[in-house]
């Protein structure tokens, strides 16, 4: 089983005094596979120098060692814990490109992340976990289309009163709130007040995330 899994811990610790390439070949030998070529390609793509001693590496570069360690043997299942911490945006993009290739070749990738932009951009399915319980599990698209709309009104200081309104914020330039209900009712209510501009958007994933966490609070 473990042979088919590539695991990346969130905090990677390595044996002190080892060179990157020695560690990679140790991990490969422990798996009983020869993947020098793949390791070399991955190191090049992630701009990691295999001749360096791991202790001298920065956090991001150490993360890359962990990534190559988890990816070099081309497993069928990836379990990645906060994979992009410490990586610069360019590397993050390259990293997700590699994962996408692996995914297209048939591998399954699980990853945990606090960066919800990353999740909405690269993942197909997402689950919200709070205190060990899964609160929501669906495709990222469906999680994003909960029927809830983020409504922003500019040029008014007055919010309409409707059932299904949450997170109402009255600011100097306008009013913002989340609306979960019949859109027709919303439009009728909006017609009765004056405002300069209106935007209706699907909420961002982090708003949905907050939504589930707030729900969790009321449950307790």
């Amino acid at each position: 089983m473990l042979g088919q899994i590539g695991y990346l811990p969130s905090e990677t610790a390595f044996y002190s005094g080892m060179k990157v390439k020695d560690l990679l070949s140790f991990a490969a030998k422990m798996r009983g596979v020869d993947c020098k070529e793949e390791a070399k390609v991955l190191c090049e793509r992630l701009e990691l120098n295999p001749e360096r001693t791991i202790d001298q590496l920065s956090l991001g570069n150490r993360k890359k060692v962990g990534i190559v360690c988890a990816l070099q043997h081309a497993p069928a299942l990836y379990i990645l814990d906060e994979p992009t911490g410490g990586l610069d945006p360019l590397m993050q993009r390259e990293f997700y490109k590699i994962l996408k290739e692996r995914n297209e070749q048939g591998a399954t990738v699980f990853l945990s992340s606090h960066n919800l932009f990353e999740v909405s951009r690269y993942c197909k399915h997402a689950a919200v976990i709070r205190e060990g319980r899964i609160l929501a599990l669906d495709s990222v698209e469906k999680l994003g289309h909960t029927g809830v709309k983020r409504v922003s009104l500019r040029g008014t200081g007055q919010a309409p009163t409707l059932p299904g309104m949450r997170d109402v914020k009255v600011e100097a330039e306008g009013v913002r709130f989340l609306y979960d209900g019949d859109v027709h009712l919303l439009l009728q209510a909006l017609a009765s007040i004056s405002f300069e501009d209106l935007t209706l958007t699907d909420p961002e994933l982090d708003e949905i995330f907050m939504h589930y966490y707030e729900k969790g609070d009321t449950l307790q």
Partner: peptide, 13 residues
């Protein structure tokens, strides 16, 4: 102590 167990024990041994 060095947290390398996380690396070692996730290898297939």
């Amino acid at each position: 102590r060095d947290h390398t167990a996380e690396l070692l024990l996730t290898l297939p041994v």
